[in-house]
């Protein structure tokens, strides 16, 4: 019986076995990258809304504080979405005839809330609380990105557990003075690490990275 395999098959077999490990590792790496990519997380992807609400205009051009609309952010787990009445505080006079604001006026007349599309979403097995973060010195823009520059709002970060832990393990890299939490233009100073360590001590910021901190 003739030989089934040419002697060169040995070399091919060796390369295949050796290369197989790299192919598997490469696939795992590619999957992990894809999982973290904006393609999956939708980070950086402006979300269309029934009314093209611009944080850029209201925050940067008009200088309205975050808490004017997100009233419960300091004492509740949820930052709070403004009722249509809050929009109408100004828009009963300003841009009264704008067709863009028709859904706002309709909602105010009928009492039916505007159906906003949610931008930031964490899985429901995560118990996130806004109030503890803003009261300890985690600024809005630390997690939500440059909101004051967003014509349509997008999710700024992956919101993955690895990303949360980045701060939960090293809060000194991110915390700011409590008075700067709602400042949309705050940038970390050059000596952030030194200042951050002092703030961590001053504000009794704990490194809470037990599972049950967020998963209860």
């Amino acid at each position: 019986m003739a030989q089934l395999f040419h002697p060169s098959a040995n070399a091919i077999a060796k390369v295949t076995i050796f290369g197989g490990a790299f192919i598997v590792a490469g696939l795992v790496w590619a999957a992990a990258e894809l999982y973290r990519s904006p393609y999956v997380t939708r980070a950086g992807d402006p979300i269309s809304q029934p009314v093209p609400f611009s944080h850029k205009h209201h925050v940067s051009d008009d200088g309205i504080d975050c808490r004017y609309c997100h009233t419960s952010v300091e004492n509740s787990s949820f930052a709070g979405l403004p009722p249509t009445k809050t929009c109408m505080n100004c828009h009963s006079i300003l841009w009264l005839d704008s067709p863009m604001l028709e859904p706002v006026r309709k909602s105010f007349q009928t009492g039916e809330p505007i159906h906003w599309t949610r931008v930031n979403y964490v899985p429901q097995f995560v118990f996130f609380n806004h109030s503890i973060h803003v009261n300890k010195g985690v600024g809005c823009t630390t997690c939500h990105g440059p909101v004051g520059e967003m014509p349509l709002t997008w999710q700024a970060e992956t919101l993955h557990m690895r990303w949360c832990l980045g701060c939960h393990e090293h809060p000194e890299k991110f915390v700011r003075p409590v008075g700067e939490v709602f400042n949309p233009d705050w940038k970390p100073p050059a000596d952030q690490l030194d200042r951050g360590r002092k703030l961590v001590e001053q504000n009794h910021i704990q490194k809470l990275n037990d599972c049950y901190t967020c998963h209860r």
Partner: peptide
């Protein structure tokens, strides 16, 4: 299943009530 649980969070819509909130 755990990711989206049969519970409501603030301002979520709900098919249970006529006004959808």
């Amino acid at each position: 299943d755990m990711y989206r649980q049969p519970k409501t969070e603030p301002y979520m819509s709900s098919p249970v009530f006529a006004d959808g909130t």
